[in-house]
Design a protein around this nucleic acid. Structure first.
Lengths: 267, 267
DNA sequence: GGAAGTCGTTGCATATTCTGCAACGACCAT
DNA sequence: ATGGTCGTTGCAGAATATGCAACGACTTCC
């Protein structure tokens, strides 16, 4: 909508890859150096980017501070953490917490495995949405039309031979997950890694987050991991219970949609 | 420099406080609703802000992802973490890692105390710059003119009776810290909390980060905490050694300053 | 040691882009 | 029904961002 702001924001992912100098930024934005300079200066004034001693720019500290504040406002995280830690203490595997937002699922918390062989993942990193157990749980709860729309919008990379191949398969899987109330990822992302997950529900039973336990084959077999399912579900339910118990006033007004999603064209 | 971008960026700290609707944003930016709408839409397109089901805006997931990438590029953090964890395992207290950036010092890592009574702090939150041990360490290493300029720019809130009262006192303290190579905060921020810190040095001996151990009076006395100093210094030195050992190509060119800081006016 | 080459910076004229306005539509309350 | 809130849209005017060209600081190459 706003070209200038759009350009400025495009600089951020670019700098996230690593420090860059003025010319690199200008050429990747496809604007004149002077334009890039002004944008960078503005970002700098706001502490979003930082200028290194060698004059190159990188993402600044305030961005980090902002993001940190943002996550802290996600009450699910606060509530869930102790439960996740407890589960990790009990089984020793990596435990993840994830939320869905605009075609992306991302980890917002994680308790590391206590085994030396670990799964790689990163808080804040988008999840492999078509295969991850947490992603299935979150998408399975979307209202039918939207679920369908999202499924068709996605790409289906073949990470492994067991990755979800296409939208149809994914929708079928989502239906199953929705039905049974839990989900798995058996080698769909990394051949040797399995996950079991369960949904965390807020008021009115909507899925607000999802959690999972992940472990590589070399540590426990898929069957052994599945045997943890009851425990995982109990943890998710405990979090849900606590979450609905004292939700810090989420969505005061029910739902107002001045412009409904699927509006009919005017006559 | 760029008004539009500036306005858009001003929305971020505002939303960090909590979700807000269009009107609130518009009035706090002091612009027309339609203007605020366009800015928010642009931020939304880039995933920086998210629109809740109740139509209010809050900071989005991508901001979180970006920030996460940003910190990961700070190699000090990667290198330091295991050492901090080890120190925590040994003494049980809260361990912090902080960096300085443009008049701000902020925590970039933290290992929580294992005692029930803990100091409150938050990764990503700006540190009380005039009293914190880590802040003293970082500022003490600035070149003299800048150190002075910063000290005079700062505010000196009287958190407690032992807070640094003014710029003169602060500069004196910094000189001492610079001299002795370590720093303390004895009840300067919270009456009952003490800290001991040591600097982490990069190539050429410049201080690139600082670490500290904090504990409340009720757990250990200031003297007992001070007895940890040798250990803290050793940890900081171990991190420094590892950091200079394999710095992932920081600052390739030495220093180019097309426009020197203190340029004389043209004749 | 001079000359050519980088790279960041500045002032300015142009026109592109953003702004505020006013009116509308959807929704809620009374 | 009626009035009120809040988000959304199209438009004309004007403020704002843009690209250009030239310069200064610095490096490198001959």
């Amino acid at each position: 909508m706003s070209q200038t702001v759009g350009r400025a924001l495009s600089i951020l992912p670019l700098l996230a890859e690593g420090p860059a100098n003025l010319e690199q930024v200008a050429s990747r934005l496809d604007v004149h150096k002077s334009t890039a300079l002004r944008l960078l200066r503005t970002l700098h004034e706001h502490g979003i980017v930082y200028r290194q001693p060698d004059q190159r720019y990188r993402l600044g500290a305030r961005l980090f501070a902002l993001a940190q504040e943002a996550v802290e406002n996600l009450d699910v995280r606060e509530i869930a953490h102790p439960h996740l830690a407890e589960l990790n203490a009990a089984c020793g595997h990596t435990v993840h917490l994830a939320v869905y937002e605009e075609d992306e699922v991302l980890y917002i918390d994680k308790v590391e495995s206590r085994y030396p062989v670990r799964m790689y993942s990163r808080i804040g990193k988008p999840v492999a949405i078509t295969v991850a157990a947490v992603a299935k749980l979150l998408l399975a709860d979307l209202p039918e039309p939207e679920r369908r729309a999202v499924a068709e919008r996605l790409d289906y990379p073949r990470y492994t031979s067991r990755s979800t191949p296409d939208a149809a398969a994914f929708l079928a899987e989502l239906a199953k997950v929705r039905e049974q109330g839990w989900a798995t990822d058996l080698g769909g992302h990394e051949e040797s890694i399995n996950c079991v997950g369960a949904p965390i529900r807020g008021a009115e039973g909507r899925v607000v987050a999802a959690m999972s336990v992940s472990a590589p084959n070399v540590v426990v077999s898929a069957d052994e991991l599945l045997s943890l399912l009851p425990r995982v579900r109990r943890t998710a339910e405990a979090i849900s219970a606590e979450y609905v118990g004292q939700p810090t006033l989420p969505q005061p007004t029910g739902g107002r949609h001045p412009h409904p999603r699927h509006k009919r064209a005017a006559p």
